[in-house]
C-alpha cells in the first residue's frame, strides 16, 4: 500500500510536468529565446514603438519637401479637378517607345489594377464581378496618358492613390499598358 502511494505520487508529478509543458506551448505568444539580445535589434526596427517621437511610432513621415534617392521626380500637378484636366491635356510619358516595358506593365497591372479593372481592362475584375467595386470598362472612359497617370498618382472617385505601391517608372509602365488595353478593347 505504501509503495502504491509512492507510484501514484510519481504518476501525478509526471502528469503535472506534461501538462505544464503542453500548456506552455501557447501559439498566441512567441516562444522563448536563448539570447534575446542577439535576436532583437539594438537599432530601431521599422514599425517599432518608440518614445523618441511624439506619436510613439518609429515609422515617421519624411520631412516635407524631402526627395528620395533614385527613381523619383517631383509631380507638380495638383490633386484637383483642374489638375486632372491639366494632366489630361498636357502630361505625357517620359518613356519613349523603346523604354516602355509592356511585360512589366502587365505584371504590375495584374497585381494592382486587375483585381477591379479586370485583366483585359473591361472592368470585370474579381471584385467587380462580386459587385463590390465596379470601375467600368476602359473602352467607355475618356482617358489620356496624362489622366491615367494623374489617376494612379492621386486616385479618382472611389479609386485610391497607388503612388506608394508603384515607383514613378513603374507607374508609367502601367499607364502604357492601360493604354494598350484600351486600344485592344476598342478593336
Amino acid at each position: 500500500m505504501h509503495i502504491n502511494m509512492k507510484i501514484a505520487a510519481k504518476y501525478i508529478v509526471v502528469s503535472i510536468l506534461l501538462v505544464s509543458f503542453v500548456s506552455c506551448q501557447k501559439n498566441s505568444r512567441p516562444n522563448y529565446q536563448y539570447m534575446p539580445n542577439m535576436y532583437e535589434s539594438v537599432g530601431y526596427e521599422t514599425y517599432q514603438e518608440s518614445d523618441a517621437f511624439a506619436n510613439g511610432v518609429e515609422a515617421q513621415l519624411p520631412a516635407e519637401g524631402t526627395i528620395p534617392r533614385g527613381d523619383f521626380m517631383p509631380f507638380e500637378i495638383d490633386n484637383t479637378t483642374e489638375g486632372y484636366e491639366e494632366a489630361k491635356l498636357n502630361l505625357t510619358s517620359p518613356l519613349d517607345s523603346t523604354q516602355v516595358d509592356y511585360e512589366q506593365g502587365k505584371v504590375l497591372y495584374d497585381i494592382y489594377c486587375a483585381i477591379c479593372h479586370g485583366t483585359k481592362g473591361d472592368g470585370n475584375g474579381t471584385l467587380a464581378k462580386k459587385e463590390l467595386i465596379i470601375p467600368g470598362s476602359y473602352a467607355d472612359k475618356d482617358i489620356t496618358t496624362g489622366s491615367i497617370y494623374h489617376t494612379i498618382y492621386y486616385g479618382k472617385n472611389t479609386m485610391g492613390s497607388y503612388a506608394n505601391q508603384l515607383s514613378e517608372t513603374e507607374r508609367w509602365h502601367v499607364v502604357a499598358y492601360v493604354e494598350k488595353l484600351k486600344a485592344d478593347l476598342k478593336k
Binding site: 509543458f21 501559439n27 498566441s28 505568444r29 512567441p30 516562444n31 522563448y32 529565446q33 536563448y34 535576436y39
Partner: peptide, 14 residues
C-alpha cells in the same frame, strides 16, 4: 524541447 526554443513555428498572435 531545447531545440524548439527560439522557433516560432505555429505562432498565431491575436
Amino acid at each position: 524541447y531545447f531545440m524548439q526554443i527560439g522557433v516560432d513555428q505555429g505562432y498565431e498572435p491575436v
